[in-house]
């Protein structure tokens, strides 16, 4: 029998509320960090700039990104235009920075080992971190949507919504559909956030983790653009990100939306289980 087998089992006392405090701490830190606030400011500037630009010069129908021509008639379309513009680059950038920093940032600055001394297991730490990243991801999407909605309402007013199919629905239904669009984008980006967290467990260099996470998006988008690879397009990370357009058709194909969402969540499950395994087996020295 080796000496290692004689080590006593580690008994961690369980304090009530420790997990909740950990989660609150995660969200609090990410919201106080100046870099993250700057990212949110950039995100909120995008719908604002599009709104002002459209206000100053009315675009013709069919110009620019999708829905741009409809903003002047209904400010709600600024939400959809802003999300369409933000989803390929700006939102993944924000998600990549926050998720890439989540573990590697702590390891790099030498605070991860102190975090592991609080009375929670590594699993719970990962769960708290994941929830923190998910919260920030949702917040980033919400910032784009809410600033878009407010800017659009102030500059152009709100009204009945013309769907992609040409049918018109009431403003209330339109707002519900905008909510569906935002929720879908949040779920889609959560798959990427989980990828960022896994990459973040692999290194102590937060910048490398962030860059790799954003690289993940670029590689996926690149593969998606090669027609010869059409066989694998359906399962690529970024392929269905613009699937939120489904919410703007008269007859929403819920089966398709659920299928795409399941794919995003499957990515999240695989990446998070990888992150968990890596964290369990990792020697935390810093």
């Amino acid at each position: 029998m080796s000496f290692a087998d004689l080590t006593l089992p580690v008994v961690r006392p369980r304090y009530r509320g420790a997990f909740w405090r950990l989660y609150k701490g995660e969200v609090g830190i990410s919201l106080r960090r100046r870099r993250n606030l700057a990212l949110l400011a950039v995100l909120s500037a995008i719908p604002l700039m599009i709104g002002i630009a459209v206000y100053l010069s009315t675009p013709r129908a069919g110009d620019g990104p999708a829905f741009l021509g409809q903003i002047t008639g209904n400010g709600l379309f600024l939400v959809f235009t802003a999300l369409t513009v933000c989803i390929p680059v700006f939102l993944p950038l924000v998600v990549g920075v926050v998720s890439g920093d989540s573990i590697a940032g702590e390891a790099g600055s030498g605070t991860l080992r102190y975090l592991l001394t609080v009375p929670v297991t590594r699993t719970r730490l990962l769960v708290a971190k994941t929830l923190g990243v998910a919260t920030f991801t949702a917040l980033a999407v919400a910032v784009v949507a809410v600033v878009g909605l407010v800017t659009g309402a102030v500059l152009f007013g709100l009204g009945n919504v013309t769907l992609l199919s040409g049918d018109t629905v009431s403003l209330g239904t339109g707002l519900l559909r905008a909510l569906g669009v935002s929720a879908y984008v949040m779920v889609a980006l959560f798959g990427l956030a989980a990828g960022g967290m896994f990459i973040s467990t692999l290194t102590e260099n937060a910048i490398a983790a962030m860059a790799t996470t954003i690289g993940l998006v670029m590689v996926s988008a690149l593969l998606d653009a090669v027609p010869q690879l059409s066989a694998i397009h359906g399962v690529l990370l970024t392929h269905n990100w613009l699937g939120f357009g489904e919410f703007l058709r008269s007859n929403v194909d819920t089966a398709a939306v659920l299928r795409w969402s399941a794919l995003h969540l499957a990515y999240a499950a695989v990446f998070l289980s990888l992150a968990w395994a890596r964290l369990q087996s990792k020697d935390v020295t810093s």
């Binding site: 080796s2 695989v270 289980s273 395994a277 087996s281």
Partner: peptide
């Protein structure tokens, strides 16, 4: 040389992502 329970546990942890991927598949 024997393998310590800790390193065994560490290796067992990697079965989680394998099982997750298999379940999804």
């Amino acid at each position: 040389m024997t393998t310590s329970p800790r390193s065994l546990r560490r290796r067992a942890a990697w079965s989680a992502p394998v099982l997750t991927a298999a379940a999804i598949g």
